[in-house]
């Protein structure tokens, strides 16, 4: 019995080192994590987790996978390579989106229910702080060099800017109606906030902490991806079933990609120039070639796919 297990482990471990990157996707309705080989565009594995997973963050350095479960008031931690449960971090509230700091061992989690950002020590796996933000915080992004955190407050139409190292409020800025996702463009020092109710994208200059522009980007914009050089934005339009490629210099739409139904999140594979989009209604992942505009594959997932993270 033992021998069989070992050989299985060896076989299972091989693709991890061979393939470039593995993509982890939550399926909230079915409570599963799907692992996709981003090089070969294949579903590698799929395993059950605690109920209602929304966000997932891979911590490659410590071999951990963090998963938020808003309805359980829980962040669960699993082994990145095996999927085996490490521990439960009982946060209370409704932990939603998460971002991992690459400079210090901290995981930041928005808490939709308590209007707060939770700080979890990524080494001790303990909840260490609760920071007040605006109402119903959804998306969160980190400016690692500038040591700032950006939080989209869904119910008060603002963006909170926090100091990533100390519990210090830097600014609260008005954005569109129903802000959901936020991302930071290192190359241009710009913050992007998508707002699902007025269908807008707000562009904020990080130095001035002032909005440069706000424009409509399709019905119910959700996730916002940024190309490696910062020249292109990729906005998921949930009600249009589209991924929009936008020029970051003039905000013109360069290209549109037809996704599955009610797309949620986008991840960009910079090496292969591909975009991965999770489709909430279609229960699938669509992969596009950014250079040719072609749809390369659609992978079926467990029901209710939401957010993604790469190893």
């Amino acid at each position: 019995m033992k021998r069989i297990r070992w050989s299985f482990l060896l076989l299972a471990a091989l693709p991890v080192f061979v393939s470039a990157e593995r993509l982890f996707i939550t399926s909230q309705t079915d409570a599963r994590i799907s692992v996709v080989d981003s090089e070969n565009l294949l579903l590698e594995s799929d395993y059950a987790v605690d109920s209602g997973p929304v966000a997932v963050v891979a911590d490659r350095q410590r071999n951990h996978l963090f998963i938020s479960h808003p309805e359980l008031g829980l962040v669960t931690v699993r082994k990145l390579d095996s999927g085996e449960k490490v521990t439960d971090i009982s946060t209370g509230g409704q932990p939603f989106a998460m971002v991992l700091d690459d400079k210090r061992p901290q995981l930041f989690v928005t808490d939709w229910d308590r209007d707060a950002v939770l700080v979890i020590n990524a080494e001790s796996l303990q909840l260490v702080d609760i920071l007040a933000v605006g109402k119903s915080p959804a998306g969160i992004a980190l400016n690692s060099e500038g040591r700032r955190l950006y939080i989209a407050n869904r119910e008060d139409n603002t963006l909170t800017v926090l100091d990533a190292d100390r519990a210090r409020l830097i600014a609260t800025l008005p954005v569109g109606r129903g802000p959901y996702a936020v991302n930071y463009n290192t190359a241009l020092s710009q913050i992007y906030v998508s707002s699902v109710q007025d269908h807008s994208l707000t562009v904020i200059d990080d130095d001035q902490l002032d909005a440069i522009q706000q424009f409509e980007v399709g019905r119910s914009p959700y996730d916002v991806g940024i190309s490696e050089d910062g020249s292109r934005l990729y906005v998921v339009s949930q009600n249009d079933n589209l991924l929009l490629e936008i020029d970051a210099a003039n905000f013109e739409v360069l290209q549109t990609f037809k996704t599955g139904e009610m797309p949620e999140s986008v991840w960009l594979d910079v090496v292969n120039q591909r975009a991965f989009v999770s489709n909430w209604f279609s229960d699938s992942l669509t992969i596009f070639d950014l250079k040719t505009g072609a749809s390369l594959a659609e992978i079926s997932l467990a029901r209710g796919p939401r957010m993604m993270s790469v190893q």
Binding site: Q28, T29, R154
Partner: peptide
């Protein structure tokens, strides 16, 4: 632990 009818933490 006031419930917030606007929040969207739960499963759609």
């Amino acid at each position: 632990l006031a419930s917030n009818v606007y929040a969207h933490g739960p499963t759609p």
